[in-house]
C-alpha cells in the first residue's frame, strides 16, 4: 500500500465498469459470445490499469514509463484485427452478410472503446490524486458522458427519410416504387415475392447523405440489420429471394426490397432509421472548397 494505491484502484474500477457499460447486446447481436465478452472485459481491465497508472508515473517523474502507452496502442490495434478476422470468417455463413464496411466499423469501435476506457480511468485517477475522491467521482461521471457521446455514432434516420413503398412487377422486372430491382422470370416466384415482399424507399435529406447512403457497404449494413430484426424468407441456394437494395440514379433515393419473416412495415422502418451510419461511408461533397461557399 502506498499513496497511489487507492487512486489506481479507483481508476481501474471506474474504467472496467465503463467497459462493461459499453457492452451492448441488441438487435445487431454482437457481442453475444460469452468468451468474446471475457476477452474484451480482460482487455478493458488492462486498458483501465494503463490509464490509471499514467498519473502516478508522471508524479514520480518516471516519464519513460509513459511510453508503455505505445505498447497499449499496438495491443489494441491487435484487437481490431482480431475482431475483423473473426467477423469476416463468420460473415460468409450469414444468410444476409454484414459486408466488409460494417465489419470494419465494428472492429474500429472495439479498438476505440479501449482508448475511451484509458481516458476515463486517466481522468478519474488524475482527479483523485490532485483533488479528492469526490472530485474523482465527478470527473469519472463527466468522462463517462464524454465517452458516451463518442461511443454512439449517427443513425440513418438523421440523414434520411424512410418510407414504405409498393413492390410491383412490370413484365419480369421487379420494382420498388419506380426503382428497378431485378428481373424475376418465373410466375410462381413472382407471386411468392408479391405475397411476402416488403419495399422501402430511403430519401436522402441532403446532398452529403446522398453519397453516404449510396455507399455499397452502407447499403449492405441496412440489409443485414433488417434481416436480423425481421428474419428473412430465404435459404441458401435461393438467390431469387435475396434481399436487394438499388439506387435511383436521378435523385439518389435508395430502394430496399426484402422478404421478411415478420412482415411488419412499422418495425422495419424503425430498424432502418436506427441503422448506424458507417464511419467509412460518410462523404461530405458539400465541404469541397473548390465549389465556392454558396453552393451545396
Amino acid at each position: 500500500m502506498n499513496e497511489y494505491t487507492f487512486s489506481i484502484l479507483f481508476g481501474v474500477t471506474v474504467g472496467t465498469l465503463a467497459r462493461i457499460y459499453m457492452f451492448r447486446t441488441d438487435y445487431r447481436q454482437y457481442p453475444t459470445y460469452p468468451h468474446g465478452m471475457i476477452i474484451h472485459l480482460a482487455l478493458g481491465f488492462i486498458a483501465a490499469s494503463l490509464g490509471a497508472l499514467v498519473v502516478p508515473s508522471i508524479m514520480e517523474e518516471e516519464f519513460t514509463a509513459v511510453t508503455f502507452l505505445t505498447l497499449a496502442a499496438s495491443q489494441f490495434r491487435e484487437v481490431r484485427n482480431m475482431e475483423r478476422k473473426t467477423l469476416t470468417e463468420m460473415d460468409s455463413l450469414e444468410l444476409v452478410p454484414r459486408g466488409a464496411s460494417y465489419i470494419e466499423g465494428i472492429a474500429v469501435t472495439f479498438e476505440g472503446r479501449n482508448y475511451l476506457v484509458i481516458f476515463i480511468s486517466f481522468v478519474s485517477s488524475l482527479a483523485y490524486l490532485s483533488i479528492n475522491i469526490w472530485a474523482a467521482c465527478v470527473a469519472a461521471f463527466l468522462a463517462f458522458l464524454v465517452a458516451k457521446k463518442y461511443m454512439t455514432g449517427s443513425r440513418l434516420g438523421k440523414i434520411s427519410d424512410v418510407e414504405q413503398a409498393t413492390v410491383s412487377f412490370d413484365g419480369a422486372g421487379l420494382y420498388v416504387d419506380n426503382i428497378y430491382i431485378m428481373n424475376i422470370g418465373i410466375p410462381v416466384r413472382q407471386k411468392e415475392i408479391l405475397e411476402h415482399g416488403l419495399g422501402f424507399v430511403i430519401k436522402p435529406k441532403n446532398f452529403d447523405a446522398r453519397s453516404t447512403i449510396g455507399n455499397l457497404g452502407q447499403r449492405q449494413a441496412i440489409l443485414h440489420d433488417l434481416a436480423i430484426s425481421l428474419g428473412v424468407y430465404r435459404d441458401s441456394g435461393t438467390p431469387a429471394l435475396v434481399p436487394l437494395i438499388k439506387r435511383d440514379l436521378d435523385d439518389g433515393r435508395i430502394g430496399i426490397f426484402i422478404l421478411p419473416q415478420n412482415k411488419s412495415a412499422d418495425l422495419a422502418m424503425k430498424v432502418i432509421s436506427q441503422v448506424p451510419t458507417l464511419e467509412n461511408a460518410i462523404r461530405m461533397p458539400t465541404e469541397t472548397k473548390e465549389k465556392g461557399s454558396g453552393q451545396s
Binding site: 413484365g171 419480369a172 431485378m182 428481373n183 424475376i184 422470370g185 418465373i186 416466384r189 441458401s236 441456394g237 435461393t238 438467390p239 431469387a240
Partner: peptide
Amino acid sequence: EAILDGIAHK
C-alpha cells in the same frame, strides 16, 4: 433454378 442455385430471368 432450384438445382443450379441460379435465378431464372425472363
